[in-house]
């Protein structure tokens, strides 16, 4: 890396995408890459608080988790897992396409990613409404309906379970974790739309594709968090 960026006069030679304080596209790309990785680290730590709360409560009250997980719809959760994994593939494909100057393919792949993200949110919405309807909400407001309790007995395959105390704690944790994850999906939708616009108007090329790659990295972490949430919440037992 040269230090010629002190000289104001060489800005004329800079490509338009290169910010004035960087000396080369490589330096700009590397800075962005390290920046986004650090951001992902903060994201992991941000979620870690919730994972830690999950671990503490599951260790102290395994019976709550065993009983409560019967209320969750494993099929819906599984579909959502597949949808997110698919979207991770398509966004990675989009990055590859941008690097190869295949603009149309890149836009297409980003659009598929966007559709997957939207599908995830729709399924999540159906799940949430169902939970609200059944009275399966957090903390103080938790009041499962008779129908919900009957369903659990059906799921438990004849095994008679005693309803544990403080069952609502599971749903507090469930809504905090999936809710925070949902907010991240919504943020991802916003960024992906922005990337579709920028890719379509030709901002990116094999010379400059950093922002698409950074978006993809963010999307992978959103996907990855879900991959942990699904077994921890839906597949207990």
């Amino acid at each position: 890396m040269s230090n010629n960026h002190h000289n104001e006069n060489d800005h004329g030679g800079h490509p338009s995408f290169l910010a004035h304080h960087f000396s080369s596209p490589q330096q700009q790309y590397d800075a962005g890459k390290l920046g986004i990785w650090l951001f992902l680290v903060t994201e992991v730590l941000f979620f870690s608080g919730l994972f830690c709360a999950y671990a503490v409560y599951r260790f102290n009250h395994p019976e709550i988790f065993r009983y409560a997980h019967f209320f969750l719809d494993t099929t819906m959760g599984a579909i959502n897992t597949v949808v997110l994994i698919l979207s991770s593939l398509t966004i990675a494909w989009a990055v590859r396409a941008v690097q190869l100057n295949q603009r149309r393919l890149a836009v297409g792949m980003l659009v598929v990613t966007l559709l997957c993200a939207a599908a995830f949110m729709v399924i999540k919405y159906i799940e949430y409404t169902h939970k609200f309807h059944m009275g399966l909400t957090w903390g103080e407001s938790f009041a499962p309906s008779a129908e919900a309790l009957r369903e659990v007995l059906g799921e438990a395959h004849g095994e008679v379970l005693e309803k544990p105390a403080n069952l609502h704690l599971f749903f507090s944790i469930y809504f905090c974790m999936t809710g925070l994850h949902g907010i991240h999906v919504l943020a991802g939708i916003g960024v992906i739309i922005w990337m579709i616009v920028r890719t379509a108007r030709g901002d990116f090329s094999s010379e400059y594709f950093g922002p698409v790659e950074y978006t993809a990295l963010y999307w992978h972490i959103v996907d990855l968090v879900w991959i942990f949430l699904f077994p921890l919440l839906y597949l207990i037992d």
Binding site: E43, L45, G49, G139
Partner: peptide, 23 residues
């Protein structure tokens, strides 16, 4: 490395106070 944990703690406390989640 440390501040995100404060972020989630603050958020949980807000939710605790507003929605009484009980954590």
């Amino acid at each position: 490395l440390a501040t995100p944990v404060l972020g989630i703690t603050g958020l949980l406390l807000i939710v605790e106070r507003v929605a009484h989640i009980g954590v």
